[in-house]
């Protein structure tokens, strides 16, 4: 396996310049033959479950026959080299890929036994139930208060001003941000530090009471102290939410998650208890990655 092939499929989503259309690097013709995933993909009583998911950007296959369960109140981390399809898979879980014209998803993904790609499932409702935190903190250029209140407002979750205030306060409190911002709720959210902005985005996701929170490399733009704060927060949120997190940092995966899934070139290579994956990887590719031989 050459180095070029490992980086074959550039993550087509996170860095694309426009609204629609995406960029896929040359030289990734070898959309690898399907692997049989090592480890147990299923958990009892899953919150979400994906079965035989294939994702294509035009003709290019980005995800190859991936099946994975996401358990109730667990943190599952997805690791793998750049372009392995982990972000693409994550974005399938709340149909964020719908916004990309050339993206096509096959297979079945269910949320509480409802197929999220069926006609009866509304993407807007789905995204209210499956929230998302992005790689780069992206608060709205509005006040801190409005950032949190926006979701509940458009969904009509608050019947009165005081209810809305309460949602804002509890969301900020859950994100550990309330004490830092309670005196400046009317100040713009973009004026906060990077770590605070990311926690603001987490609070914004919490405010609509989702069942699942997807996090796409939430700490990659943060310094170690802010990262530690967010990781702590993820651990606290696990009590009430199911969290799927994509990360480039294996230490982070080891610290915050109970289960870990290793992706490689669009394939789900191995999945298992985080401890097992890091101490006793079964697949040679997994072992090579976590011991730092590539990636």
């Amino acid at each position: 396996m050459s180095k070029a092939n490992i980086y074959a499929i550039e993550n087509p989503v996170t860095h694309q310049p426009g609204w629609i259309g995406s960029r896929v690097q040359e030289g990734s013709e070898n959309t690898a033959s399907p692997y049989a995933t090592v480890g147990n993909i299923a958990v009892p009583n899953p919150r979400m479950s994906a079965r035989s998911v294939n994702v294509f950007y035009d003709e290019k296959q980005a995800i190859n026959n991936v099946s994975l369960d996401i358990g109730l109140n667990e943190v599952i981390s997805m690791i793998g080299p750049s372009g392995c399809g982990k972000s693409t898979f994550l974005r399938c879980l709340n149909r964020m890929n719908d916004t990309i014209d050339i993206c096509r998803v096959e297979g079945e993904i269910t949320l509480q036994d409802e197929n999220i790609y069926s006609k009866s499932m509304d993407a807007v409702l789905l995204r209210a139930r499956v929230g998302m935190v992005f790689q780069k903190p992206n608060p709205f250029p509005k006040s801190i208060y409005d950032n949190i209140a926006y979701g509940p407002k458009i969904h009509g979750l608050a019947r009165s001003r005081s209810e809305l205030n309460e949602i804002v306060e509890t969301s900020l409190a859950k994100a550990g941000l309330w004490d830092e911002v309670k005196d400046r709720l009317t100040k713009p959210g973009t004026g906060l530090s990077g770590g605070q902005q990311q926690r603001l985005c987490i609070a914004r996701a919490i405010a609509v009471s989702p069942e699942v929170i997807l996090m796409d490399e939430p700490c990659s733009a943060l310094d170690p102290i802010a990262t530690a704060r967010v990781e702590e927060l993820i651990d606290e949120l696990r009590q009430n939410y199911t969290i799927a997190i994509v990360t480039h940092s294996m230490q982070q995966a080891a610290r915050v998650s109970q289960r870990t899934a290793y992706f490689h070139l669009g394939n789900l290579v191995e999945v298992g208890e985080t401890n097992d994956i890091f101490t006793n990887p079964k697949h040679p590719l997994t072992e090579a990655y976590i011991t730092g031989r590539f990636g």
Partner: peptide, 12 residues
């Protein structure tokens, strides 16, 4: 794009 994704992400 990040602003659009943020809005879509909370279910707008």
């Amino acid at each position: 794009l990040s602003i659009r994704e943020a809005a879509l992400g909370v279910g707008a």
